[in-house]
Amino acid sequence: MFLQLIISGLSIGSLYALIALAMVIIYKASEVPNFAQGEMAMISTFVAYALLITAKASFVVSFLGALLFAVLLGMFIEFVALRRAKDPNILNLIIITLGFEMVLYGLASWKWGAEQKHLPFPISDTDVIQFGTVVVSHLDIATMVVALIVMITLFLFFRYTKLGIAMKATQQNVIAARINGIRTNRITSFTWGLSSLIGAVAGILLSPVATLDPNLMMDPLLKGFAAAVLGGMTTLIGPVIGGYLLGVIENLFGAYVSLEFKSVVAFLIIVFVLWFKPSGLFGKHYVKKV
């Protein structure tokens, strides 16, 4: 029982980890918590749905199409609004992301209505594999594997590719990066695209177990934030661990404490972490110099 809870916690946790990772990448680049992250992923998932059902494309084409859409959407948002903010302080940037949150939510609800849809998925969530006493669905396994692949690719990307290193440089010091010949504007745009891509992966993996409607990512968004806050928003490994931890904690809380208030756990975690370790488990705290 306990082991079972841990495994399914890790499965949902890997989605939280992806969302948290997507947010942290943007946070490091633009210094804003991206409140549109959830809706960006939601609408990308709807694009997959539209390609699959309305345009009758194959799974591969639909999913790749959705991911491409996600990348373009991310870059678009950065390009049309974020870099144009007149006074880009944290409050104004948050307001922009909230603005996009509402626009995307409105667009999706307008186009697809509020009724719940189901995104067909090539991997079943009812077929299971048995390991001793633990039962794991194919979908859970696929989710964990895909998430792991995405994360490992991402770490390698930031470590070894030219673009990844340029992104890291831009995140750490825009001016220094610019002096060294990096087109920081373009890099920031790419960063948004990359983040949006990761979010969309999470959205697509989530849709078979949830129902597809404009509220798809409302709850996962808060979970993603909780995971990011838990792990700390200054590192990449922090949010990943935060995501897995949150998934497991939430599952255990649901089983042993109260199923009803399971979704309040994320909020409690946010409050506790911020109370005792304001920069998260792995984050560093910077003090303003005067």
Binding site: A81, N92, G99, M102, G106, W110, A114
Partner: peptide
């Protein structure tokens, strides 16, 4: 049926435009 959601789009756009303009 989804038409009333247009309000959300308009509010979102207003927020973005205010910050930019």
């Amino acid at each position: 049926t989804g038409l009333p959601n247009i309000s959300s789009i308009i509010f979102g756009l207003i927020l973005i435009l205010i910050v930019v303009i």
